[in-house]
Amino acid sequence: MSSANPSSTPSEPSAALDLTVGPVDLTEALCNIESVSGDEKRIADAVETALRAYSHLEVTRLGNNVVARTNLGRESRVVIAGHLDTVPIAQNLPVQRIVKDGKECLWGRGTVDMKGGAAVQLVLAAELNRPNQDVTWCFYENEEVDSELNGLGIIARTQPDLLEGDFAILCEPSSAGIEGGCNGTLRVIVTTKGIAAHSARAWMGENAIHAAAPILARLAAYEPHTVTVDGLDYRESMNAVSITGGIAGNVIPDHCEVKVNYRFAPSHTPDEALAHVRELFAGFNVEVDDIAPGARPGLDSPRAQDFARVVLERSGTQPAPKYGWTDVARFAELGLPAVNFGPGNAIYAHRDDEHCPTDQIQTCYEVLKSWLK
Rank of each mutant, 00 (worst) to 15 (best):
S2P: 06
P10I: 09
S11Y: 13
E12D: 09
P13A: 09
A16G: 07
L17G: 09
L19G: 01
T20P: 02
V24H: 01
C31V: 08
N32Y: 03
I33G: 03
S35V: 10
R42T: 08
I43V: 12
A44P: 09
D45W: 09
A50W: 06
L51W: 01
A53M: 11
V59M: 10
R61Q: 15
N64F: 07
V67M: 09
A68M: 06
R69V: 04
N71F: 07
L72P: 03
L72K: 04
L72C: 03
S76M: 02
R77T: 10
I80W: 03
V87A: 08
V87K: 14
P88N: 08
I89D: 02
Q96K: 15
V99I: 14
K100D: 15
K100G: 11
E104W: 13
T111L: 13
V112P: 14
G117Q: 11
A119L: 10
L124K: 15
L124A: 12
N132T: 12
Q133W: 14
D134G: 03
F139S: 08
N142E: 14
E143S: 09
E143D: 15
L149C: 11
G151N: 09
G153K: 10
I154P: 07
A156Q: 06
L162E: 03
L162P: 02
L163V: 01
I169H: 06
E172M: 00
E172P: 02
S174H: 12
G177C: 01
T185Y: 04
I189W: 07
K193S: 12
A196W: 05
H198E: 00
R201G: 13
R201I: 13
E206D: 04
A208T: 09
I209R: 12
A211S: 06
I215E: 05
A217S: 14
Y222K: 12
E223H: 12
V227G: 01
T228N: 09
V229Q: 01
D230N: 08
L232C: 09
D233H: 06
M238V: 11
N239Q: 08
A240K: 07
V241D: 02
N250M: 10
V251T: 15
I252C: 11
E257W: 10
P266E: 00
P266F: 00
P270N: 08
L274T: 10
V277T: 09
R278F: 04
L280P: 11
F281P: 01
A282N: 15
G283N: 09
G283H: 08
V286K: 07
V286Q: 01
V288Q: 05
D290F: 13
I291P: 00
P293R: 03
R296W: 03
R296V: 00
P297Y: 02
L299W: 04
L299P: 04
L299A: 06
P302E: 00
R303P: 06
A304P: 03
D306Y: 01
R309S: 13
R309D: 15
R309N: 11
V310T: 15
L312N: 09
E313P: 06
R314C: 10
G316R: 14
P321G: 00
K322I: 03
F331I: 00
G335K: 00
L336Y: 06
P337W: 00
N340M: 05
G342Q: 14
G344F: 13
G344L: 14
N345R: 08
Y348V: 11
H350P: 12
R351Y: 05
R351S: 10
D352R: 15
T363M: 14
T363V: 15
V367G: 10
V367Y: 10
